[in-house]
Structure formats: C-alpha cells, structure tokens
Amino acid sequence: MKPLTSRWASPVAALAILGIVAGCGLPQLGPNKRQIFSGSVQREGDAFVVAVNDRVTRATAVVPALGFSSGFVNAAQLTSDTIRPGDVLGLTIWENVQDGLLAGQTGNSTVLEEVQVDSAGFIFVPYAGRVRAAGNTPNQLRELITSRLDDQTPDPQVEVRRVAGDGSTVSLVGAVGGQGVYPIERPTRTLSAMLAKAGGVTIEPEIAQITVIRGGHRGKVWFQDLYDNPALDIALRAGDRILVEEDTRSFTALGAMSQQARVPFESQNLSALEAIAQVGGLVATSSDPTGVFVFRNEPAEIANQVLGRTDLQGAQRLIYVLNLKEPNGLFLARDFVIRDDDTLYVTEAPYAQWTKTISLVLGAITPVADVQTLTGG
C-alpha cells in the first residue's frame, strides 16, 4: 500500500480526530437539553419536565407567607400611665390632722421616695399594707391607697408619681444601628418607632426581616411591610425580643452563565429573568437561550396543579423549561417566580460545542502542518 501524499494527510487527520471526538464526547459544563429531557417521567425518568406558560407561572407563584397573628395585631398600645412590675414610684400622703399616722410633728405630709413595684405587681404602703399597683394608672393607685387609709386617718390626700421604671423594656438584636435593651416610652410604643430608636436597620430594607418573640409566640414580617401595611406595625409589650436579620433564601446558578455560584435573593419576589440578570446574564458565545431550566422539589399540591393531576403525593421533582427566544419568552421568564433552593441551569449553545470541536481539530492538525513545513513537503 502506498503512503498517503501530503495533499491528503491533513484531511485524513481531521476526519480521524472528528471520529475520536464523536466517540469520546466533548467536555461539557453539564447536561445538554437532550440529556435533560431523557430523564423525564415521560421517558421513564424520575422528574417531570414542564414547559413554562402563563398557567404554570400562576400555579407556581408562591412567596413566603410572613405576618403577625391576631394576638400581635390586636394588642392595644401601652399607655405611659400604666404601672408595671419594676417601675419605681414616689408617694406623698397628706393627713388632715396635726399628729397623723405618718406625718411628723413638723408637718402634716409624708413623702415616700422610690417605692418599687415588685415582680408580683405590688407595693407596700404603711398602714395600707400591700397594694396592687401593676395594671393601674397612677390615679387609680392613688384612689386605692386613699380608700385603704381612709379608715385610719381622717380625709387622707394621696399623690402618686412615676419616678423611673425598668419593667417595660424590649431587647433588639441583629442588623440594627444599636443593639440593646430599650424602654417602651411614649414615642416608642410601636415596632417601627422602636426600630427607629435603635438606629434603624443596617441591611438593605428590601431583604430585611423582622421577628418579634413574645413569650412562646413569634411572628415575622418584611421590614418594608411595616410601612406598606400599617396594621403590621404592632404595639410592643414588656419583654418583647426583636430580631432583625437578612433574608436567608438563595438559589444555585449553574451552566453557561457569567457566574456559577450559590446566590442570595436581592428582593422579596425574584423572577427567573431577575435571577439571570443577578448573575451577570447569559453569555453570547456559549449560552443557549432556548435551554433555561429551573430544577425544584415541588410540594404535591402545587405539582398537581401544574400537571393537571390529583394523585401525586409528597414532594415531586419538577424541571421547568424556559425558552427566551419564543415571542413571549421574556415575559414568561419575568413572571416565573424563583423560590428558595431552586437550581437555575442554562445549557450550552450548539455553536459552543461546534467551536470546541473545531478547536480540538485545529489543535491536532497544526503539528502535522508543522512537520510538512519542516520537511519541505
């Protein structure tokens, strides 16, 4: 057999390399569209592959349900006059006699400074005994003490004033300007006012979440909802614990995009289009706009709506397909809501695979050409 001439050496080498490439496969960022569709339930796989349309976007538009229970919302504001355990009061008692029960020989009034309300809500007044103070206003307490002393001294006159108090406080921690314990005062009876007192939130307001813990109950709202919905600006109670933290939701971006990473949400409601933009968008030379996939474990009630079924139970694996080249593709991507733990995956364009093939072929042919040049073939 005669050896191949130089004229046919390069084409034969190219064909040989193409054969090897076809047999071994090219490097990939991940599965291509054909491989993803091959894993669908329709092809005996374990995931439902669903093309996104208007009905699907409506069925899957689920966002975190945050809010306060009726116990939080319906609680009335504390008045500045209400006495609470821990408050410190000052009492002045006048007696209509020269030598009264409490007054000395030089006057007919007695001053009791810094009478602290105990943990049970009571104070002790000489000759009146233990008197319930917590839950009463200073005027109501004055009437109680007067009625107790009325049987022992003629026409007593009582004054009750607030000296200080540490019973009506709340604690603020997390992403606020000043963490600490703050008293509930006249200007800071509501949640938003107390946050302002603490220096406001120090993270992006759009992703700030506020948790209020009251005894064994807790509620959580978005920071912006305090201003969009005044009913959520709840009245505070002594002992409330307020936590300000950043939204912890995130999605994973993979495939032919500008960035591959686990990405935190930057807004309360994140669409597929916004998620793509958040990681830098598609890459013109490698991304396939017809192959945008969202992988998700969908609750059975939503999966049944999406698939038009009623028999599915438990979480289901769903793969949503977005084709940005369709006439309404960008609108659908704008309306499709990304949820926590979603995986956003973009396949490589066929052109990118072809480019890889050409690069491998040319890289292999170049040494042959160099040999021919050196030998003068």
Rank of each mutant, 00 (worst) to 15 (best):
4 L>D: 14
12 V>H: 11
12 V>Y: 11
18 L>T: 09
23 G>F: 13
27 P>Y: 02
28 Q>D: 00
30 G>W: 01
31 P>F: 01
34 R>D: 04
34 R>Q: 06
37 F>V: 01
38 S>C: 00
42 Q>V: 00
44 E>V: 00
45 G>Q: 00
46 D>F: 01
48 F>Y: 13
52 V>E: 00
52 V>N: 03
60 T>D: 05
64 P>R: 05
67 G>H: 00
74 N>T: 08
75 A>L: 06
77 Q>N: 13
80 S>D: 15
81 D>L: 15
85 P>A: 13
86 G>R: 10
86 G>N: 10
90 G>Y: 08
92 T>C: 02
94 W>G: 11
97 V>F: 07
101 L>H: 01
105 Q>S: 14
106 T>V: 12
107 G>C: 02
115 V>I: 15
116 Q>S: 14
117 V>L: 06
119 S>I: 11
122 F>H: 09
128 A>R: 03
131 V>S: 07
133 A>Q: 06
134 A>D: 04
136 N>G: 02
151 D>P: 00
152 Q>K: 14
155 D>E: 06
156 P>C: 05
156 P>F: 04
156 P>I: 03
159 E>K: 10
161 R>E: 03
162 R>A: 08
168 S>N: 15
170 V>D: 04
182 Y>K: 03
188 T>L: 00
193 A>W: 01
203 I>G: 03
205 P>F: 08
207 I>N: 02
208 A>P: 06
209 Q>K: 14
209 Q>H: 07
212 V>A: 09
212 V>I: 11
215 G>T: 12
216 G>A: 13
216 G>Y: 10
216 G>P: 08
217 H>S: 15
219 G>H: 10
221 V>N: 08
224 Q>H: 09
229 N>P: 01
231 A>T: 14
232 L>F: 07
233 D>A: 06
233 D>L: 07
238 A>H: 03
243 L>H: 15
243 L>N: 15
244 V>D: 07
244 V>F: 13
251 F>E: 11
255 G>I: 08
258 S>W: 02
262 R>K: 12
268 Q>G: 11
272 A>T: 15
280 G>P: 05
283 V>C: 01
287 S>Y: 07
287 S>H: 01
288 D>L: 06
290 T>L: 04
292 V>T: 05
293 F>L: 10
294 V>N: 04
296 R>P: 09
304 N>Y: 01
305 Q>Y: 02
307 L>P: 01
309 R>D: 03
310 T>G: 04
314 G>F: 05
314 G>E: 02
315 A>S: 11
315 A>Y: 03
316 Q>G: 00
319 I>P: 04
320 Y>E: 08
321 V>F: 05
322 L>T: 05
324 L>A: 06
325 K>Y: 02
327 P>W: 06
330 L>H: 03
333 A>W: 08
337 V>E: 06
337 V>T: 15
338 I>Q: 07
344 L>K: 08
348 E>A: 09
355 T>H: 06
356 K>H: 05
356 K>G: 05
357 T>Y: 11
367 P>H: 13
370 D>T: 14
373 T>S: 14
